[in-house]
């Protein structure tokens, strides 16, 4: 009963392995375009906080990509729920809600780490090397992906169709991806806007990932916030699994 999560995670890994080449290609397209358009073409003379814009952009893209890929687990769950009905196999299995959520969240985290590896490789192609050996960099990536994968599983249990899922992505994830300190420093916006953006988890993830990749001192508050919100979303997701029953 305790190890039900292994079966859920194992299934997601098998699917991931089968689609890996397609997934790597799709994970590379958007970051590559951002790096070419914003980093290389537009930002080559821009310096932010003593770093080139390319150096500034790559940690932001790592934050954004780990968020979107971890959240993408929601679409996978929806396809298995509404289209292939594979979710019924999990519902009929003697596993706890905790096991199910943990398996899916780990799958989201795995996707997120792969996407960050893609960003690092793309950054290397543009000659950018940051402090990737800093454990805090990977800790921030882990917390960011844990938070958004937990949110994704919870929402996937609540939505009633693919359309609902797409709407959530458009209204929640896309604005956050652009406004959460990924492409520009949040402190360049008016104070009132900064106050609003402070409530976005991605703002804190970008801050933590960026300072870790520059080897700067860690923002403890950002890490604590990501841990707190992540655990909250995880617990909510566990209770949402029952709501997916008719």
């Amino acid at each position: 009963m305790m190890y039900g999560w292994i079966a859920v995670y194992y299934r997601e890994l098998l699917i991931l392995r089968r689609r890996l080449s397609r997934l790597l290609a799709s994970m590379s397209v958007s970051p590559l375009l951002y790096l070419i358009a914003f980093g290389y073409a537009m930002g080559h003379k821009v310096v932010i906080e003593g770093h080139t814009y390319m150096e500034f952009l790559i940690p932001g893209l790592a934050a954004m990509s780990s968020m979107t890929q971890a959240f993408a687990i929601a679409s996978e769950i929806n396809i298995s729920r509404f289209y292939w009905h594979i979710f019924e196999e999990f519902q009929a299995a003697p596993i706890t809600n905790f096991s199910y959520v943990l398996g899916e969240v780990l799958a989201g985290i795995t996707r997120a780490f792969i996407s960050v590896a893609v960003i690092i490789v793309l950054g290397l192609l543009f000659g950018v090397v940051l402090s990737y050996d800093n454990p805090l960099f990977w800790a921030a990536i882990f917390l960011n992906s844990f938070l958004f994968a937990s949110l994704a599983v919870g929402l996937a249990m609540l939505v009633k169709s693919h359309a609902d899922q797409a709407m959530l992505s458009s209204f929640v994830i896309t604005p956050m991806a652009f406004l959460g300190g990924t492409f520009f420093p949040v402190d360049r916006l008016p104070v009132w806007a900064q106050k609003i953006l402070y409530f976005l988890p991605l703002t804190h993830a970008s801050k933590a990932i960026r300072s870790a990749s520059f080897g700067s001192p860690a923002h403890c508050s950002s890490y604590l916030l990501l841990i707190g919100i992540g655990l909250l979303f995880f617990l909510i997701s566990i209770s949402c699994v029952n709501m997916a029953r008719d």
Partner: peptide
């Protein structure tokens, strides 16, 4: 799971 083999489908069930 259409993208998995017969064995993989049965194996996941056994693990569950």
């Amino acid at each position: 799971d259409q993208e998995l083999t017969v064995f993989e489908n049965l194996n996941i069930h056994g693990a569950l």
